[in-house]
Computed example of a mutant assay.
Amino acid sequence: MQSKVDVAVMIGSGVPASLRALGRRVCWVVLLNGEPKGTAFSSRDEAEECKAAWLAQLNAEKPDSLH
């Protein structure tokens, strides 16, 4: 099964209280097969870095295909 990793934006009440307390009204989360993984990020760049790490980990776990 191939896993899907995405970055999603959360706005308003979807933003965790800790970020809202800092004045943030938007955040980004990494989704693995539609499920949030890790924490909410205050920048898209941070979320994209996390996404890249997930993809690298998933690719490392894949068994080598037989030729």
Rank of each mutant, 00 (worst) to 15 (best):
Q2A: 13
Q2D: 10
S3N: 13
S3K: 11
K4N: 14
K4C: 06
K4H: 12
D6C: 09
D6E: 15
D6N: 15
V7M: 03
A8W: 05
M10R: 15
M10T: 02
G12M: 02
G12H: 07
S13I: 12
V15A: 04
V15L: 09
V15W: 12
P16A: 07
A17H: 07
A17Y: 04
A17V: 08
S18L: 01
L19N: 03
L19K: 06
L19I: 11
R20A: 12
L22N: 08
G23E: 06
R24S: 03
R24E: 12
R25D: 14
R25C: 08
V26E: 15
V26T: 14
V26Y: 09
V26G: 00
V26N: 07
C27T: 08
C27N: 07
C27V: 05
W28H: 12
W28A: 04
W28T: 03
V30N: 00
L31V: 08
L31Q: 08
L31F: 05
L31M: 13
L32T: 01
N33H: 03
N33C: 01
G34R: 04
E35V: 13
E35M: 02
E35R: 09
E35W: 03
P36V: 01
K37V: 15
K37Y: 04
G38N: 04
G38I: 01
G38P: 00
A40V: 04
A40L: 07
S42K: 08
S42I: 03
S42G: 05
R44G: 06
R44H: 11
R44V: 05
D45Q: 12
E46G: 12
E46F: 03
E46I: 00
E46H: 07
E46K: 14
A47G: 06
A47K: 12
A47C: 07
A47I: 03
A47D: 09
E48P: 02
E48R: 13
E48F: 03
E49W: 07
C50L: 00
C50K: 04
C50S: 11
C50I: 00
C50V: 02
A52E: 15
A52N: 13
A52G: 07
A53E: 15
A53V: 04
A53N: 06
W54V: 07
W54R: 11
L55W: 01
L55E: 15
A56E: 14
Q57V: 02
Q57G: 11
Q57K: 14
L58C: 00
N59G: 05
N59C: 08
N59F: 09
A60K: 13
A60P: 06
A60W: 02
A60F: 06
E61D: 13
E61G: 12
E61Q: 15
K62D: 10
K62E: 15
D64E: 13
D64C: 02
S65E: 15
S65T: 11
S65R: 14
S65N: 09
S65F: 10
L66Q: 12
H67P: 14
